[in-house]
Amino acid sequence: MQELINSQIFLLTLTVGVYLGAIQLRRKINCALLHPVFVSILVLIGFIRLTGIEYEHYMQQTQIIDFMLGLSVVALGYILHDQIYNIRGNVISIVMAILVGSAVGIVSVALIARWMGAEPAVVASLEPKSVTTAIALSVSANSGGIPALTSVVVIVVGVFGGIVGPWVLKKIGVESRIAKGLAMGAAAHALGTARAMELGAVEGAISGLAIGLMGLATAVLVPILEKIM
């Protein structure tokens, strides 16, 4: 029995199964906190604790899922190409907004966390918080962060950004549809995009584009800004 529980086929099936179950749960009860990734992580942590499986062993056996993460980042290049018609005539403003936004995001989260006493590994884990998880994890690992911490922070930020985004934009008087979509995708990645789609087709498409651009800008800016800060 223990042998079966430790086997690759069992752990892979369990991981995908728990994830599908979490998605079903989300469909039944629509609550932002019941995010499928959150729920899956909690259930699997509970299972690992109960059965006494080492995390290193679990990670090794499910490595193929982790590998797919890298592939899905490459696939974002396809979405970027698919959305590019949306930004004709606004290339410069979009690039500027993303660069400034990315820098503000990295610097502000690092300074606040450091000021509140967080240690360097935690600060490095927070820096790529606005970026889609796949890119955030590589950036975090590259700069001495803890990928597991980053993955949870990214989801929290996405859920939060999706909820407050439209409200913040309204408060500060942003009316341009491109600006709204860009801000949602830049701050809250795919979860912001899901919300932006509800605002409108333009907002949704631009938001999807913002995910890719923000990921790129952050991957380049984090190592540079870390040297300066």
């Binding site: 995390y55 797919m68 990928p147 949870v152």
Partner: peptide, 30 residues
């Protein structure tokens, strides 16, 4: 894509003490 984050997220089990120690800083900063 969301499925692919799960194994890494489970790794939180190894950094649980770090997370609880800096919980407030992490939440406020983010």
């Amino acid at each position: 894509m969301m499925l692919f984050f799960v194994p890494v997220g489970v790794g939180l089990i190894t950094s649980y003490t770090l997370l609880s120690r800096y919980m407030l800083a992490i939440i406020v900063a983010s």
